[in-house]
Amino acid sequence: MSADAAGADLLAEARALLAAHPVVDGHNDLPWALREQVGYDLDRRDIAADQRAHLHTDLDRLRAGGVGAQFWSVFVRSDYAGDHAVSATLEQIDLVHALVARYPDRLRLALGADDMESARAHGRIASLMGAEGGHSINSSLATLRALYTLGVRYMTLTHNDNLPWADSATDKPVAGGLTRFGEEVVHEMNRLGMLVDLSHVSADTMRDALRVTRAPVLFSHSSSRAVCDHPRNIPDDVLEQLPGNGGVAMVTFVPKFILPEAIEWTRAADVNMEANGFHALDTTPDAMVVQRAFEASHPRPRASAATVADHLDHMREAAGVDHIGIGGDFDGTAFTPDGLEDVSGYPNLIAELLGRGWSEADLGKLTWGNAVRVLRDAERVARELRDRRPSIATIQQLDG
């Protein structure tokens, strides 16, 4: 059999597997892209139509990719502060509710593991929400509870900058991990049943959260630091704690987090963006003109589905197959790996893993089973803590 024929067979096998075990993707920034590009005007970016000229995500490509559930990130940039961060997060949440209402034949809001299973049974993509950064609660546990009431089911403790109560992976350490108030945030998330997401946080914050949590944690979009030495990735000693905790680490596709050669290239591209008046995370059309011009004159190192599979091979070895998943970060990155250009590409990753000898049972855990289980386990812990009163602690009381 030719290599092309073998590849076609693996791809067909991957698509069949995803029909039985669809992808739960831990992180997609479509809400922020819609905010930045069209100010939430869904008539101008109708994701029922082909949006490949503007977005990594639309409904037909989600179906082609075998996606059965999506955690939509209700991200706001970490330079948003105070009430501005809170109100912008509420606008992001409102957008997700608007998407679900606009496309009821394709999307269904999911508030828990049972909802995920029900949506899948009815042919809908289960739509969950994750808040990307504790700046979204403005150091308020009442605001945290309000986000949960509105449907947010994980919160990433930090984004790219430190908080008064937690250190970020990409900022200078100040707290040395979590402060006392940061630990209280984790306890309150456990009480609610909101997953503690440790992507973006420093390694010491990861370790502190694992020490204090009663519930399994999540890494919604992080890869292996042993394979690519970037501070956004997960050290092996943390991965090795996941079996005892029950958590799940969801590999991401962002080239600078998976390909060592891409780290310096991306740093230079970010400097170029800022020199041209754009935020480094900007993916609006005007910003992408600047990015593509830089790429044309400075050819970028190319990641691929095989690069991502290298991370998954290592993460499976370090954490075990019951503790890994997928969190692509589509529409939150300017560049993507070859074969994983958009949300239709998941079959290419599954085909790569099949070619490496991954079993259907193991792949079913990677794509669907582990993510559903971790949310169900967080719900169980919340039931065990139902008699605990909501915390009224403040950061001034605990850290002042």
Rank of each mutant, 00 (worst) to 15 (best):
M1T: 14
S2N: 14
S2A: 09
D4M: 12
A8C: 02
A8S: 13
E13Q: 15
A14F: 08
A14C: 06
W32M: 15
L34F: 09
E36H: 12
V38A: 14
L42P: 00
A49P: 00
R52L: 09
L55K: 05
H56C: 06
T57W: 03
D58I: 08
D60M: 06
R63H: 13
R63L: 10
F71R: 09
V76W: 04
R77C: 00
A81K: 14
A81W: 01
D83M: 12
V86R: 06
V86A: 04
L90E: 01
I93N: 01
I93Q: 03
L95T: 12
D115E: 08
M116P: 00
A119K: 04
A121G: 03
I125E: 01
G130Q: 06
H135V: 10
S136T: 14
I137F: 12
N138D: 15
S140I: 04
L144F: 10
Y148A: 13
R153I: 05
T156S: 15
T158P: 05
N160V: 08
D161G: 00
P164F: 07
A169W: 06
K172E: 15
E183T: 08
V185Q: 05
V186L: 08
N190F: 04
G193L: 06
V196L: 08
V201R: 07
S202E: 07
A203Y: 03
M206Q: 13
R207E: 13
A209Q: 01
T213A: 14
A215W: 07
P216D: 08
L218K: 05
V227I: 15
N233I: 04
N233E: 07
L239E: 05
L242E: 01
P243Q: 11
N245K: 08
V248P: 04
A249C: 15
T252M: 06
T252H: 04
V254R: 02
K256S: 10
K256L: 03
W265M: 10
D270N: 14
N272A: 13
E274Q: 15
G277F: 09
P285V: 01
A296G: 12
A296E: 13
R300S: 11
A305V: 10
H311R: 11
H311L: 10
L312P: 05
D313W: 02
H314W: 11
M315N: 02
A318W: 07
I326C: 02
G327F: 04
G328E: 01
T333F: 00
F335N: 09
S344E: 05
L349K: 04
L353W: 09
L354A: 10
L354N: 10
L354Q: 11
G355S: 08
E360Y: 00
L366T: 08
T367N: 13
V374A: 11
L375T: 07
L375A: 04
D377S: 14
E379A: 13
A382N: 08
R389I: 06
P390R: 05
I395H: 04
